[in-house]
Design a binder for these strands. Structure first.
Lengths: 192, 192
DNA sequence: CCTACCGATCGGTAGG
DNA sequence: CCTACCGATCGGTAGG
């Protein structure tokens, strides 16, 4: 199989997720592809750029998926449920990227670090606003929308740490269960 | 201030939490203490042993705290609430250790790695058993105790990622809120 | 895609 | 507690 920039990035994604950014040597990425370390530089600029691409792309996709999830839904509980569902689903289906984002974000250089933190902040605030709106409408009973948004988002993130595609539950099953969990955390009295 | 084994470990805990195990050089640990790298070896055996001690001690304390939390409580919902409360509280008050355990456990060598994974597995299964017992008694409505135990425990773990002692909420406040979240995830219909 | 090689830095030891 | 130093490995470059 031909080595391409995408193949290098995929190998790096697997290894960074397994051993961490600093715990992975480029020689290991090269060995995973069956080439020598210097040959990697035909397909990438640096180890740092590899990390930056993986983390920034993932963070942008999370934000885009949130927008698509809430767009066109009138009911605030439906919007929150769908936002939690796609977030949990992503963490079951893109486990490697999720582990890297949450483990190695501090190893990013500027300006990418700020971009990623900004996207994450926007996402959290948007979810917090949904919870606050639900409370204002009397649909949710969260006493502190900020703590609830942290709790429910990070719970969805953690799916990446235990989910296995070989288990009894599909990614969709888990995402459904977690969207129920999320609504309960936000204080929905009678989930479904 | 005299450099002691405890001081070396504390400096390593701060730096490992900040930059990761592989991202931290022993020269940084030494600089943090105002000494040269070789002098560290008067107070420790190796970088790996430093990590092993931090992670194993923390994991053993988690298991001991769980035992103390459920011991002597008759009501299964009370036991689950208290187990979640002490777990969340620990992740607010021992943030550095929690971040290291969850980020660098894969960098551990045997036999400590197996010991830590075993302690973690016992904790999860004990929580899962509490949920199952609550369901059997009709007190909880979790449809899948395993998924619920993962969700609720990992939610508590994530406190270490956002909590700040300088914020408006105390560690105790957050632990109280999270123990409510945990019971809701487990399907308690009318949390307090 | 390779070999050959660079300076820097790593964890750790010798010896005092 | 230090200086001096070890072999190994790191990310990356030269040059083909």
């Amino acid at each position: 199989m031909a080595v391409t920039p995408a193949a290098v990035r995929d190998a790096a994604t697997t290894l960074f997720a397994e051993k961490g950014y600093h715990g992975t040597a480029l020689s290991e990425v090269a060995a995973h592809l069956g080439i020598r370390t210097p040959s990697l530089y035909n397909h990438m600029r640096s180890k740092q750029e590899l990390l930056a691409e993986i983390v920034l792309d993932t963070s942008q996709q999370v934000w885009a998926e949130f927008g698509a999830a809430v767009d066109g839904r009138a009911d605030v509980v439906d919007r929150l449920r769908e936002a939690a569902r796609v977030y949990a689903l992503r963490h079951a289906t893109h486990r490697r990227e999720a582990l890297i984002v949450n483990r190695d974000v501090a190893s990013l250089a500027e300006p990418v670090l700020s971009q990623v933190l900004d996207l994450r902040r926007r996402h959290e605030r948007a979810v917090r606003a949904l919870i606050a709106e639900g409370v204002a409408q009397g649909r949710l009973a969260a006493e502190d929308p900020r703590t609830a948004s942290f709790g429910l988002l990070e719970m969805c993130v953690s799916v990446a740490r235990w989910f296995s595609p070989d288990g009894a539950l599909s990614a969709q099953d888990v995402a459904e269960q977690y969207s129920d969990f999320a609504l309960r955390v936000a204080g929905l009295r009678d989930p479904d």
